[in-house]
Amino acid sequence: MSLTDTSGASRPLVADDSVIRPKRGVERLLAGNAWLVFAFLYLPILLLFVLSFNDNRVVGVWTEPSLRWYRAMITDSAVLGALRNSIVVAFISTVVSTILGTAAGLSLERFRYRGQRTYDGLLYLPVIIPDVTMAVMMLLFFVQAFDLLGAMLGVSATFGIGTISLSHIAFNISFVAVVVRARIVGLDPSLEEAAADLYASRWQAFRRVTLPLIAPGVAGGALLALTLSLDEVVITSFVAGPGSTTLPVYVFGLVRRGVTPLINAVSVLMLVGSMLLVLASLLLSRQRNTT
């Protein structure tokens, strides 16, 4: 890739950005790279879409289009059970983490108290920690907690929807907080002062001014939490009990054994699901920018 200036070459004198815009040759290279990246990002997904409608039992051999594998999917009780679990876990963890994450964001951005930096650091860790490490942490924690519960209260708890939800909340709080905080930072603090100046109590100021204004951020955070919860594999597989696998964990198990047309169909279902969520959050962020 040659970015070198060929100073002898004639340069058009028209565009005022001719100096910052790269030369035509370089521009072409950049554009080429961009289209290759887009192809790289989209072709695999596209291929999966196409193959999911292939009638043949062998994935790589195209015979004719059909909905055969989708029909197989919606009658597969294992798939449906896993889907149900996924939805339950995603719902619980999204609701709880949205409330807790928003509160954490408000607390850190709108107040000053000692120990805040430590809290801040603790809040960021779940975002950057590799999922394998987090999975180990959750597994050992619940093993210890169950031991303790059994010994002290005689309660026997097991891995299942509960442990999965608790684990998902643990990382989702942080993601929600990041998104909500970005929104709070962009909020003019004098708006809240104005509310107080206009006789609003703290609660009224929050309810009537702060909350409506950070609502797009809260919704964005909730959508992110929903997406992450629906996609999570590693942590979930560590803390899932028998009969409580989620859809990604179930698919992961299948995938490790090989490629099948049924997986293609389930994959497309999951992709469409997450893309709908992306679109929703993009619409939200557009609204965020206009208000």
């Binding site: 990002l41 999966l48 062998v58 790589g60 990604p248 893309m275 959050s281």
Partner: peptide, 21 residues
């Protein structure tokens, strides 16, 4: 859009692409 889409599935797609057939 792909960034937010299911990571497992996106990886699986490469298994299909790079696979024997």
């Amino acid at each position: 859009i792909p960034f937010w889409s299911n990571f497992l599935i996106r990886t699986y797609a490469w298994r299909v692409i790079l696979g024997r057939d």
